[in-house]
């Protein structure tokens, strides 16, 4: 026998999953929300998403000096997620600057995929919110116009449901659930986001603890301290879950693998922490919405959470310190 054999350490078989397949699954999961965005906000939404995804991929390829635009798919995911937390029709240069910042300041300066501390898409969002506040907060939100693909939706604008009780009460649960409310491009339809979340859960890419802890805490907080304006305290709890960015944040942003805990208990703590900070900002902070900063703050706490939640090994006994 003179065959050349490979000798390596066991195991000798590997899962077919790869970073690329995981990222592709995330893109698939975002498809319903992206489709919904186009149905509600027309061609401007499609354009925003395209500009963002292409910018993210090109900037990453340039930074890494790679010819492969899609590569592991993570830049496309960042680009799409960034677009989804923008108003449906922002100026093109804002999208380009934000997507590029997501990739460079959010990810590559730390050493690229796997090494970034903060969620890249939310870093990009935080940068544009702070740089061009008047274009990102306030009564700037276009009214959704279902199935009007060619309409320029930016003509009629208003405030989001989170701006005040008056605004909140002008929509029904059905509006919130399907997504026919003003808001960020990809955040309005709970239905579409849940569909994608179910796919990610089925594929084993997300754990229930982060979205569960996040959404559960938001609901509980809304129920207890929301003021009960939306058909009682239960209704107000539900309102806080469905309005704004909680759904997209809990299912897609707070579950970003790189920037969240790896321990099982840590994931639950992370989710609860996100929900808590979101509601602190919403109810008592100066901004109407707090999802972005809640997740970014919890991202920063991730290493500490991980270190304090390492599980007991099988058959191990807690050492009484």
């Amino acid at each position: 026998m003179d065959k050349k054999l490979v000798v390596s350490s066991s195991p000798h078989i590997r899962t077919i999953d790869s970073v690329q397949s995981v990222m592709t699954d995330v893109l698939i999961a975002l498809f319903p929300a992206a489709l919904m965005a186009v149905l509600l906000f027309g061609y401007k939404a499609l354009l925003t998403m395209l500009i963002s995804v292409v910018t993210a991929m090109v900037v990453e390829a340039l930074w890494l000096r790679k010819r492969d635009l899609f590569s592991d798919g993570s830049a496309a995911v960042t680009g799409l997620l960034f677009a989804m937390v923008l108003p449906p029709a922002p100026p093109w240069w804002l999208v380009v600057i934000g997507a590029a910042s997501s990739i460079i300041i959010g990810k590559q300066v730390y050493g690229g995929i796997g090494y970034n501390i903060f969620n890249p898409a939310l870093v990009g969002r935080a940068i544009v919110v702070m740089s061009w506040g008047t274009r990102m907060v306030g009564p700037i939100w276009p009214q959704p116009q279902p199935f009007a693909f060619t309409t320029d939706i930016s003509a009629v604008t208003m405030a989001t449901a989170l701006a005040g009780q008056q605004e909140a009460l002008s929509y029904s649960y059905a509006n919130y659930f399907i997504g026919t409310i003003p808001g960020c491009l990809g955040e309005t339809s709970a239905l579409a986001l849940l569909l994608g979340g179910a796919w990610l859960y089925y594929k084993g890419h997300i754990d229930w603890r982060i979205p569960g802890g996040f959404i559960g805490t938001v609901f509980l907080f809304g129920l207890l301290f929301g003021g009960g304006f939306y058909g009682g305290s239960f209704g107000t709890g539900l309102f806080h879950v469905l309005a704004g960015g909680v759904m997209i944040g809990a299912i897609y942003m707070a579950t970003d693998m790189v920037t969240t805990p790896v321990t099982t208990t840590g994931k639950l703590i992370f989710g609860i922490g996100c929900g808590l900070i979101t509601m602190l900002i919403r109810l008592w902070g100066s901004m109407p919405e707090g999802v972005t900063f809640a997740i970014l703050i919890m991202n920063g706490l991730t290493p500490i959470i991980d270190n304090f939640t390492i599980p007991q090994q099988f058959g191990g006994v807690k050492k009484s310190a």
Binding site: D207, M257, V258, T263
Partner: peptide, 24 residues
């Protein structure tokens, strides 16, 4: 036989979920 290059850890925690003796 798997021979491809390794990529950076994306902290997906699949190893944490797979470990039968609950290690990290």
């Amino acid at each position: 036989v798997y021979l491809a290059e390794r990529a950076p850890c994306i902290r997906c925690a699949k190893c944490v979920e797979a470990c039968p003796v609950t290690l990290m």
